[in-house]
Nucleic acid binder design. Sequence first.
DNA 1: TATTAGCACTCTATGGAGAGGAGTGCTAAA
DNA 2: TTTAGCACTCCTCTCCATAGAGTGCTAATA
Lengths: 344, 344
Amino acid sequence: MLDERTERVLWAVIQSYIENPDPVGSRYVTKKYAFSYSPATIRNIMADLEDMGYLKQPHTSAGRVPTDKGYRYFVEHIISRDIGYDERLVEELERRIKNMVEDMDGVLNEATKTLSTLSHFLGLAISPGPEGSTLRRIELVPYKDDRIAVLILTDEGVIKHKIIKNEFSLTANDLSSIAKYLNREFTGYTIKEIRNQLVKELAEDKNLCDTLIERALKLCHESLDEYGANVFITGLSSILDLPDFTDIEKIKELSKAIEDKHKMIKLLDRIVQTEGVQVVIGSENPIKEMSAMSIIASTYKDKDRPAGIVGVIGPKRMDYKAVITLVDTAARYLSKIFEEGGGK
Amino acid sequence: MLDERTERVLWAVIQSYIENPDPVGSRYVTKKYAFSYSPATIRNIMADLEDMGYLKQPHTSAGRVPTDKGYRYFVEHIISRDIGYDERLVEELERRIKNMVEDMDGVLNEATKTLSTLSHFLGLAISPGPEGSTLRRIELVPYKDDRIAVLILTDEGVIKHKIIKNEFSLTANDLSSIAKYLNREFTGYTIKEIRNQLVKELAEDKNLCDTLIERALKLCHESLDEYGANVFITGLSSILDLPDFTDIEKIKELSKAIEDKHKMIKLLDRIVQTEGVQVVIGSENPIKEMSAMSIIASTYKDKDRPAGIVGVIGPKRMDYKAVITLVDTAARYLSKIFEEGGGK
DNA sequence: TATTAGCACTCTATGGAGAGGAGTGCTAAA
DNA sequence: TTTAGCACTCCTCTCCATAGAGTGCTAATA
């Protein structure tokens, strides 16, 4: 643990570096943060901090810059003490989503935009995977020719529609019976359970003739196929205005990383394993292309079940306290919204 | 009009510049393109081309670079002669969308990805506005509490679902009657017609008591609300690899432009007024932030009606022939696909 | 013992000078 | 009409010197 004075110096360096991405010198620290010690003393302390790995010098005669470990120390303190509540975020969100009813994707999209606007970084949200949602109702509607429109409604407001081929030439009546059967059989189960069940039953019945039930199961199986989570990332242009992104290579890496949505989901699932705001600083990130960035993310709940993820991606040099507060507020707000049942 | 020799020189300069973004000198042109004239002669011709505004010099002692007018001259010749057919595009698209059924947005998304991959620029697609689609069927399904799930199916495969509040506490029976009424009344009309009709009827009936019909109309009106076109833009990271984007400011401008989807729709609607591939070169673009870019776009049809737009955005310095061919092929292919009725 | 003043040292950033080079325009000859 | 020759322009790169910021160390101080 650091003694209080050392900690204050670390804090001052980080604070200053966040405001302005120039290496911080000892003289500057004493003046700006009104230390009652001379620059020489501060220099000694900063040398200590460098030995311990909290700061480093870009080159011999430059000031100091925080390391990932330095940020980490700083962030631990914030998380254990200072998470507040961001009024503006809630107001802005209220305003934006007031006309949305049960449109979770729409709400999440607005949430990323708001997070991006308020943080000036990338706003990020992942919709709940369907696995945990509970089926409420499934509708089969004849479309045209040999097509069927399937509408899937879940308790959590996750909805999906899909058009599939009607390979068995089912009539409207057949469809209605099948829908009744499926609703009776599967309502109240989670998508995951249903999918498992389907695989099992289809395997067992493999050798039976084409009963209506088998067709129903196949239809259902096809409908639940490719029923994946959505990723929303907003704000690339605002992040480019930061002085941190003068290097084209960094921009390329970042834009590649966020274009690969699949990778993004995997990354965030890995990060957000436990409850509460999670902070990943620079090289703590398993994706090495993002080692210049930090991720602040949290899960939001949907009917008391951890559902999707919401967060902010920005440069390591960020106002962690503000962003953590922002993300925490967003996660809580979304949880509240979805608990009440959709938009408003 | 330019005489043949002059035209060949213009062609050579553009060709060379497209391969490599360095100003093109007279000596280089004679050697690389095996002209039977000396550099001095070529110099004279290039000076003429500069006087006419087809070429310009970045500075006195540099080679020449094509102007927008130069590209334009070049492009007119391509469009009137050389639009081919891009085999790879079609193969790639076939492969990607073979499992998509009636999912127009999915198809368009894959189309932009493919265009981006093959052109190395930004792939772009806009889904049809709903205005022209013909309603095929509308379904009302009770969801939970006071919510109703609405499923709208159109002839063109544009589908939408929405959850709306049930402000009138309608029962499942009411809903079924309402759906029947709406289907009887509106099937076969375009969304635009229906919307107009609704506005009219609702205005007329304003003073009547809440009949079921009025409720139906209101419900319908609410469902058609906010039923807009989607914009798909893919490939920012691949375009950043080009030597044209060493300037951060350009990247910022571009990323801002493509984030503003609303503006993008307006822009493209304006560009693509007539049939066939349209080419907008640099400053011909009304959005001045995009004056370093060219846009190649075309409409695709959906059941013989011009529907949405598909295209490529890249630097002015692009292989117009290849990209025009690519976009034209994509537009034709999409038209074919949608005519047949969805994915495959 | 902890702090501080002083100072030599290191490294970067900046800007100017000069060389090198690419390409032009012009002139005069073929 | 074409071309060779040449002077000229302007960019780019490198080198170098200088200024400035900030450090680490040493010795003095409270």
